[in-house]
C-alpha cells in the first residue's frame, strides 16, 4: 500500500547539508503495524511528514495505493490527507478553541459532510476512544491522555487507510502512554494499518514489525512474535 523508492530529503543549515532521509526504500502492506524507532534527530518526523503528504522528498518515489504522489496537485494531496491518512501527533495538535467533538468534526467538514451527520460521527468516534460524556470539553479541560484520544478519534473518523503516529506517547506519562499503545494494538487487530514512530524501545516492541532509522537511513526490519 505504501512504497518508498530511493527517497531522499536534505535540509541545509548554512553550507552544511543534513541528510534527514538518506536513500530510503520501504514498504508497508495493508493491515500491518510497523514501528519506526530511532534516536532524536534521526529523521523520523521528516519521514512521517513525507508519508503524510505534508512535505515532499527531494528525490525518489512515494507510491501510495498505487498512485505516484509526485504527480499530484495541492488539491489532490489535500484530498488524500483527508481520506487516506490519519495523523496522531506528539503534541496532539488540537484546535484550542474548538470542543472535543468539534475537533473531531474538522476533517469531516472538509469532506463536505453535513453538520448534523458529522456531529453524529464525531460523537460515535469519541465514544469509541472512551470519551463519552467529554464531547463538549475544550482541549484545555482535558488531560494529556484524553487530548490524545480526541486526536485519535479525529484520525479515525474518516476511516483512513493508514494511521501515522509520531511519538504519540511522547508527551504522556508512562501509564497513559501504555493505554494509548494498547488502543493502537486493538485498532490494528480490527484491521487498521498503523505506522508508529517512537524512540522508545518498549513501545516499539508492541508493533508487529520494527524498522530502525539512524541518520536518515533505514535498517534491518525485524518481525516480532508477540501474542
Amino acid at each position: 500500500m505504501i512504497k518508498l523508492l530511493n527517497l531522499n530529503k536534505s535540509f541545509f543549515m548554512g553550507d552544511e547539508e543534513i541528510k534527514a532521509i538518506d536513500n530510503v526504500n520501504f514498504e508497508v502492506k495493508k493491515g500491518e503495524y510497523v514501528s519506526i524507532i530511532g534516536p532524536s534527530g534521526s529523521g523520523k518526523s521528516t519521514l512521517m511528514n513525507i508519508l503524510g503528504l505534508l512535505d515532499v522528498p527531494d528525490s525518489g518515489e512515494y507510491i501510495l495505493d498505487g498512485v505516484n504522489t509526485k504527480d499530484l496537485t495541492d488539491g489532490e494531496l489535500a484530498k488524500l490527507r483527508n481520506k487516506k491518512i490519519g495523523f496522531v501527533f506528539q503534541n496532539f495538535n488540537l484546535l484550542s478553541k474548538l470542543t472535543a467533538w468539534e475537533n473531531v468534526q474538522v476533517p469531516l467538514i472538509y469532506q463536505g459532510i453535513s453538520s448534523k451527520e458529522s456531529k453524529k460521527i464525531a460523537f460515535e468516534y469519541l465514544e469509541k476512544v472512551g470519551l463519552k460524556g467529554r464531547e463538549n470539553h475544550l482541549p484545555k479541560q482535558l488531560s494529556g491522555g484524553q487530548q490524545q484520544r480526541v486526536a485519535i478519534a479525529r484520525a479515525l473518523c474518516c476511516k483512513p487507510e493508514i494511521i501515522l503516529a509520531d511519538e504519540p506517547t511522547g508527551a504522556l506519562d508512562s501509564k497513559t502512554g501504555v493505554e494509548i499503545i494498547e488502543m493502537f494494538k486493538k485498532l490494528n487487530e480490527e484491521g487498521q494499518t498503523i505506522i508508529l514512530i517512537t524512540h522508545d524501545n518498549g513501545i516499539a516492541q508492541k508493533a508487529k514489525k520494527i524498522v530502525r532509522i539512524s541518520d536518515g537511513k533505514l535498517y534491518d526490519e525485524e518481525a516480532i512474535e508477540n501474542g
Binding site: 495541492d74 488539491g75 490527507r81 483527508n82 495523523f87 495538535n93 472538509y110
Partner: peptide, 16 residues
C-alpha cells in the same frame, strides 16, 4: 499559522 497547519493536515485545501 499553527491552526492553518492543523487544518491542512486534516485535508483543508487552499481554497478552504
Amino acid at each position: 499559522t499553527k491552526e492553518i497547519g492543523i487544518r491542512k493536515s486534516l485535508g483543508a485545501r487552499k481554497r478552504d
